[in-house]
Design a protein around this nucleic acid. Structure first.
Lengths: 147, 147
DNA sequence: TATTGTTATACTCTATAACTATA
DNA sequence: TATAGTTATAGAGTATAACAATA
């Protein structure tokens, strides 16, 4: 009889040596962690990405945000609708088709809390990386998606 | 009148400076790329992760694979069923509850093709990273999810 | 003609609960 | 009592197609 798989003796996982696999596992682990920290604010990570762009670019439209964050127009609609419904984002007419987006006073108050969570999260993430690799992390990632 | 958002002049994206955000964008970009390369083989990236573990650990059960790859038992079932249905993986009794998994001859032939795709993909991924950052990439990622 | 915002829809991935059969 | 495999289901994220109003 074979050893019971529950106590598998020397499990070999070839995936762990593949940068692509490690990238996916690291991403899902960190996004789960971030999601847990944002849940008390009623936000998900995509909400935060959108709010940061609106805050830095008052009057921007959801189409432009979508192109920057690589989110389809069709998928932006419910995100913005939810942020507006909760009173964090306001829409102002740009022309007959477009509406510029702004943070409301409530939205700005929320962002103060968001920044506390994000700063802490990013700090903790970087500190999990051994010091000698830390400075290389962001440039390496950016090379994989920017442009 | 404001500048039309389509031609947004100096769009500021605070997200691009956040390691956590860059990690997510890099991961989704690379997984989309891998998905496109695996599609001709009728495989998705999770199939490949599973097949690599089975190949390296003949007789392993799907529960043990799930714990290694962080896939819920309930979500492993349809993956294994599909791989067995296509004739790439065979099940053999371990005890009344468990079944050990093995690659079939067809499965081994498929793996030769899979390895060609994966080797090329991982090579291309690393080569997109500037040389001075490259060696730091895998150790940094592993620190974020291993253990 | 092209673009914005929107709805509808579908597919994947992920998470939980519950069931059976077995240990 | 705990585990393996399974089914059902629900929530996200993501992709395409289509439409009305507008440029």
């Amino acid at each position: 009889m074979v050893a019971h798989p529950r106590y598998w003796p020397l499990m070999r996982d070839p995936n762990a040596l593949l940068p692509g696999y490690a990238l996916r596992r690291a991403s899902t682990a960190m996004m789960a962690e971030l999601g847990a920290r944002l849940a008390p604010l009623g936000l998900r990570s995509t909400d935060v990405s959108i709010l940061l762009v609106v805050d830095a670019n008052p009057g921007i439209t959801q189409s432009v945000i979508g192109r920057a964050l690589d989110i389809q127009r069709a998928n932006m609609a419910p995100f913005i609708a939810r942020l507006a419904e909760r009173g964090w984002v306001a829409r102002q007419r740009v022309d007959g088709r477009s509406q510029g987006l702004l943070l409301t006073p409530d939205g700005r108050a929320l962002m103060a809390q968001v920044r506390t969570v994000i700063d802490r999260f990013e700090d903790d993430l970087l500190n999990r990386i051994p010091a000698e690799h830390r400075a290389h992390f962001l440039p390496a990632l950016q090379a994989l998606w920017i442009r």
